[in-house]
């Protein structure tokens, strides 16, 4: 099985960016148990404007991808699938990186259940935190995917709490959602801001399967 994990990160520069003359991406991702950990190293040279000399830059972005235990990644291959960049407001470099984890072996039958937590900490303390998007396969397949997260603070027994993620569609109301998942309003508002929901919002709905 193959999984593609997209990352997006904004790197603010201290000076104006006129032109990126060269940019390189290197990764030190490796497997540690059921996680893939490492760093992306973004380096290169840029010009403030057409008359200035090249200035160099170098940023390290730590990254961690955790998979559920029923995925065996001992034979998995980790690689970069895509990389592109853009300049935002003349002073921010936005890098988009896709990591592909190939040859994942799945031990359970249930394809829908998987755990993904992605950490992207601050870069050199002064950079903003990474925004991370979930797997395409998860995001696109259906609005009712079951995603488990390692939310230990919600469960003192270190057990997994299972959630439904419901993407609000046309015609949905709080009541129809409550009815569909058999939860009460109190429970729903504990996990979500239900004062104002709009189409495309993602609602976390705890289930009591466990």
């Amino acid at each position: 099985m193959k999984k593609i994990v997209p990352f997006k990160n904004e790197i603010p520069f201290k000076t104006k960016i006129g032109e990126i003359t060269s940019i390189s991406l290197e990764h030190t991702l490796h497997k540690e148990g059921t996680s893939v950990v490492g760093e992306f190293v973004i380096s290169g040279a840029y010009k403030l404007d057409s008359n200035s000399d090249n200035e160099s830059f170098n940023y390290e972005i730590p990254c961690e991808i955790s998979l559920d235990e029923h995925y065996d990644i001992s034979h998995a291959l980790i690689d970069i699938n895509d990389f592109y960049y853009e300049i935002l407001n003349d002073n921010k470099l936005v890098v988009n990186i896709e990591v592909v984890i190939d040859k994942i072996v799945e031990n359970l039958v249930n394809v829908e259940k998987q755990v993904i937590t992605i950490d992207a900490n601050d870069i050199d303390k002064e950079e903003t935190s990474s925004s991370v998007e979930l797997l395409d396969s998860v995001r696109d397949s259906s609005s009712d995917n079951v995603i488990e997260t390692l939310a230990s603070d919600c469960n003192s027994q270190d057990e997994y709490v299972t959630y439904h993620i419901h993407i609000v569609r046309e015609g949905d109301t709080i009541n129809t959602i409550l009815e569909k998942y058999h939860v009460d309003n109190e429970m729903l508002s504990l996990y979500n801001d239900v004062t104002e929901i709009k189409i495309g919002d993602k609602l976390l709905i705890p289930t009591n399967e466990n």
Partner: peptide, 14 residues
């Protein structure tokens, strides 16, 4: 990546 199917350890765009 699709065409040449190479592992990409480091990429440099110049």
């Amino acid at each position: 990546k699709k065409i040449f199917d190479l592992p990409l350890r480091k990429i440099e765009i110049r």
